[in-house]
């Protein structure tokens, strides 16, 4: 198979094409072919509200990750317009410094209907970059302004980026933030309010301990001036070391596989139900009845369930 060979040789057009096929779901076998080559990369997630500086941070930390001839794959997710199904993907603008680097591969993805911070296929696309011999994979979430849980289900280290302007929102999101974050970053350190936010966060988070036993570091950065970047990168690296030494990396990755399998089962069941179990014509009739308040949605569900159980 020619594409796969070129892919395994690391040719960028081939990597790009494999991603497209995985993203479009046009070649399910491909994932099987590449899966044995995955598991080597370290996954880093960058999440946070829109405009927090996620892309700018990626642009700033990647040069550090590239040291010692390492390779970095970047996935930047932007929202699909619910009205047209189209998308405007602009994260590359911030990453122009990296565009021509041999050891960097950047791919923009549209959410295509997924409601979380990632596209449904982002996890699989990350596997593609993993198989393509990347040492690090960086995933930037959409940034919908809420906690995006799905990112932590893919990444080994998740960085939550906040900015002075997002101060108020933090209280509301507190619990959720701790669920996804391994490292907390206050970006736009040059803006007034940054230090106050750090203090507030220290107050709220510092005594908390992650269920892996890890203490949440709280860092300040100014992405556009490259300030605080060294520390962020070394903190990511020490988190990795911590996970590796404590065995939490393996535990975490196995957990992620369980989650993935569960997701796939759900997906499979749903498609199966839709395509084979539910008679759409009959369903439509029942819906009409439910609309006229003659039967209940629960009754319809029971009728369908009878076919399975």
């Amino acid at each position: 198979m020619e594409l796969l060979q070129r892919f395994l040789k690391g040719e960028k057009p081939a990597i790009a094409r494999v991603i497209t096929k995985i993203e479009n779901g046009t070649d399910p076998k491909l994932l099987e072919d590449i899966f044995p080559h995955t598991g080597k990369a370290y996954y880093i997630g960058i999440t946070g509200p829109p405009g927090a500086g996620k892309s700018s941070l990626v642009n700033a930390i990647v040069p550090k990750l590239l040291e010692n001839n390492k390779k970095v794959g970047i996935i930047a997710v932007d929202p699909t317009s619910p009205f047209s199904g189209g998308a405007l993907l602009g994260d590359r603008i911030r990453m122009n410094d990296l565009a021509l680097n041999e050891n960097v591969f950047i791919r923009s993805m549209a959410t295509r209907g997924s409601l979380g911070g990632l596209a449904t296929k982002t996890k699989d696309v990350a596997l593609v970059l993993d198989a393509a011999d990347m040492d690090y994979i960086l995933i930037e979430t959409v940034g919908v302004g809420q906690v995006e849980l799905d990112i932590a289900q893919v990444c080994d280290t998740t960085v939550v980026v906040l900015v002075p302007e997002s101060g108020d929102a933090i209280q509301a999101m507190k619990a959720g933030i701790l669920e996804v974050a391994d490292i907390l970053v206050v970006n736009k350190g040059d803006r007034t309010g940054a230090d106050r936010l750090i203090l507030e966060m220290k107050f709220a988070f510092e005594l908390r301990v992650h269920n892996t036993g890890w203490h949440y570091p709280i860092l300040k950065t100014t992405a556009i001036e490259n300030i605080g970047i060294d520390e962020l990168v070394s903190t990511i690296k020490s988190h990795r070391e911590y996970l590796e030494k404590s065995g939490e990396l393996e535990i975490g990755r196995k957990k992620k596989l369980v989650i993935r399998v569960n997701e796939l089962i759900e997906e499979r069941i749903k498609t199966h139900l839709h395509d084979y179990v539910i008679d759409q014509k009959q369903l439509k009739k029942m819906i009409d009845k439910a609309y006229d308040r003659k039967i209940t949605p629960h009754y319809i569900t029971d009728e369908i369930a009878k076919k399975i159980f």
């Binding site: 047209s84 199904g85 189209g86 998308a87 405007l88 993907l89 590359r92 122009n96």
Partner: peptide, 16 residues
């Protein structure tokens, strides 16, 4: 053009 193409359902990568 980029906005119009998005509204027509395409995925548009804008490089700046």
């Amino acid at each position: 053009i980029a906005a119009a193409l998005r509204d027509a359902g395409f995925e548009v990568i804008y490089t700046g």
